[in-house]
């Protein structure tokens, strides 16, 4: 179980493979559920060329650690991984990875869904977009639909 805040680009697929390979419980995994969020080059019908993600380092790390602990307590998970970018981000760059491992599919799917929704609604990160007409803070996340 680990949560990382990364100031540099990361490869989510490599991170999933590495984490699973290094896990002492790998032989017990029967199901893996993942969510990967990437940067779009548009938002609210405007082109977005760049984004800066700000965070509150101590609280953000504390919050992500707590989320993982809650997920492990609530579902029958064997392992869990969260990686979230901060700093300057370009279109198509991965922003967030959530991966959950369990013996069976339902726990991984439900925990992964819960983790991304909790993270989106409550984790202290803030996006500032660069558009043709200048920079602007994103006021709120989309509803995900």
């Amino acid at each position: 179980m680990s949560a990382h805040i990364s100031a540099s680009p990361f490869d989510p697929w490599q991170a999933i493979a590495s984490h699973q390979q290094d896990s002492a419980l790998a032989n017990k995994f029967g199901a893996t559920a993942t969510f990967i969020g990437s940067m779009r080059d548009f938002n609210d019908n405007a082109d977005v060329s760049k984004m800066v993600l700000e965070h509150y380092p101590e609280m953000t790390q504390h919050f992500l650690n707590k989320l993982e602990q809650q997920a492990i307590q609530r579902w029958d998970l064997l392992d869990c991984l969260i990686i979230h970018r901060v700093g300057e981000i370009n279109p198509a760059d991965p922003i967030v990875l959530i991966a959950c491992w369990s013996a069976h599919r339902r726990a991984t799917l439900d925990a992964c869904n819960w983790l991304i929704e909790e993270l989106k609604h409550n984790a202290p990160f803030w996006k500032k977009e660069t558009r043709q007409d200048g920079e602007r803070w994103v006021a709120e996340n989309t509803n995900g639909l």
């Binding site: 969020g37 993600l53 965070h55 509150y56 609280m59 979230h84 922003i95 967030v96 991304i116 993270l119 989106k120 609604h121 409550n122 984790a123 202290p124 990160f125 803030w126 996006k127 803070w137 994103v138 006021a139 709120e140 996340n141």
Partner: peptide, 10 residues
């Protein structure tokens, strides 16, 4: 004590 606007991560 920290003050901040609604969060927009993920």
């Amino acid at each position: 004590v920290a003050f901040f606007p609604p969060v927009t991560g993920g």
